[in-house]
Design a protein around this nucleic acid. Structure first.
Length: 205
DNA sequence: GTACAGATTGAG
DNA sequence: TCAATCTGTACT
């Protein structure tokens, strides 16, 4: 069943761990597809030097981070890629979880145009690839995942055990000083769909 | 107004 | 190793 707003109001660190194993579902007309979440990062809001919302910074881009849990925060990086985040916590906190990798499920355009086999498993193995696979961009900025008819997250009761999860430092935030090495990235250790630059076997805690 | 780095990726 | 080339921020 669909995750409710309450699920996301708990704060990014808790929500991030709980999101592993959940399924993002995307619908566009009769086409329904999505993937199991296998890698995430938590951004803790105003206090987190790695977060766009650090210091309570509100811009047109970050505004949705302060709206409370359960909204899509889309942003564009490196002039190339969209990234999908889900806002967390309470209004004003600026917390979010970055969805970094999915294992594909179902039949989407992205799936049918890709050769089946090993390549399919890695079709959404990185934050930029997740958005491309799900066909989401700035048009999904602020989408309410608790009521949206085109994207939501489901709990399919495939429980994830603590010992299946690796904790590691977050990627690409070397500027974040004392926050850069905190273990706020979580991924399913055995998944073949985790992002490429994931230093598997290192960086874990 | 201008400069520059960034929660990345795939090709070379 | 590098280009791609948008957005926010820190300066002139």
């Amino acid at each position: 069943m669909r995750l409710s707003r309450n699920f996301f109001s708990k704060g990014a660190q808790i929500a991030a761990k709980n999101l592993l194993g959940k399924v993002i579902v995307r619908r566009e007309g009769k086409r329904v597809w999505g993937g199991k979440i296998v890698e995430v990062e938590a951004y803790l809001g105003k206090i987190d030097k790695a977060a766009h919302s650090f210091g309570g910074r509100r811009t047109k881009r970050t505004e949705i981070m302060f709206a409370g849990g359960g909204f899509a925060y889309m942003f564009f990086v490196y002039g190339v890629h969209w990234q999908l985040n889900v806002t967390c916590g309470r209004a004003g906190e600026g917390q979010a979880v970055l969805i970094r990798a999915l294992e594909p499920i179902g039949q989407g355009r992205s799936l049918t145009e890709t050769p089946q086999g090993p390549a399919l498993q890695r079709i959404a193995s990185g934050p930029g690839k997740v958005s491309k696979f799900l066909e989401v961009d700035g048009n999904f900025y602020g989408e309410d995942l608790s009521i949206s008819e085109r994207i939501w997250i489901e709990d399919r009761e495939e429980a994830v055990a603590r010992n299946e999860i690796t904790r590691a430092k977050r990627v690409g935030i070397e500027y974040a000083q004392e926050w850069k090495d905190l273990p706020l990235r979580f991924y399913l250790t055995e998944s073949k769909a985790v992002s490429k630059r994931n230093p598997r076997g290192s960086g874990g805690f």
